[in-house]
Amino acid sequence: MMLADQPIPRPRLSLPTTMLVVDDDDAILRKVRRESLRTTNLGVLVADNLSDAVRIMESGIEIGALLVDLNFRADTQDEERCLHTGLDFLEYVAQRHRAVPKYVLSVDATDQHSRADAAQRGIHVQNWFDKMSPDSSQLAAWVKIERDLIKSALLSDSTLREKLSDGSDLADLFRDDRVAEQVRTAIRYPRVTYIQKLEGRRAITVRRPIEVLCWEREGRYFARASQIPLLQDGESDDPVDAIDELADLLREEFMSLADSSSGLIGYAEYIYKVLCEHLDTPAPMAAP
């Protein structure tokens, strides 16, 4: 654990770095979260049903990319908005958040009918990723998504555009996947991700995802809740573990303060109030 005085490195590029993954399979969500936190700088939000996915899209959190499954079980669909499939959800989003890049991760990704359906609805899917692809030489979906976001940011960067205005062919370079890959692996900007669950013996509901800044310094990863100024950060040699440590810290801090909430003053009282804005009071311990 690290004390939270150290300044966070400033981002060198302004990127919309959070990816929302929507899938009704928890195992897939866990895998995508774990792997994308380990191999990219993307932040990750997950939704295991279409209603939650809509709620996150409309929460005001800036989403940089969507990675969505096509098929959803009946109990994970959104009847109220008539969203039954991933394409329904993408169409819904396209009408309200047109600029968000959309990706599909599905066992039906190669199905021409799905692709035709998307085109017919006017949904521009940037890339279709096959969940069952046996080709291990292919880059993972999240790596390609991050690379696309970097390419897009480089192309829209005004300073770079000025440099390109002299007619040089650098623009072509920035459209090159190999260049984007070099940039992707070279840049280490602070990642913005979210904590959505605080797991433990006493259940605590996270009302609103907790924004977390995660960065790397000298081979160690640090995680800080940007809106909950705790005295400590999560720290580990693995980004997922650093975020999990922060989640653990938040949970324990909240339970400890909740147990003594009538005897808090000053900063402890302030932190408890801030935590209460994000979390529901823990359920009392069950009698042994």
Partner: peptide, 13 residues
């Protein structure tokens, strides 16, 4: 504090 109130959240483990 002397009154038994907690002034800072846990900071040492």
């Amino acid at each position: 504090t002397a009154s038994g109130q907690i002034a800072l959240p846990t900071m040492i483990r």
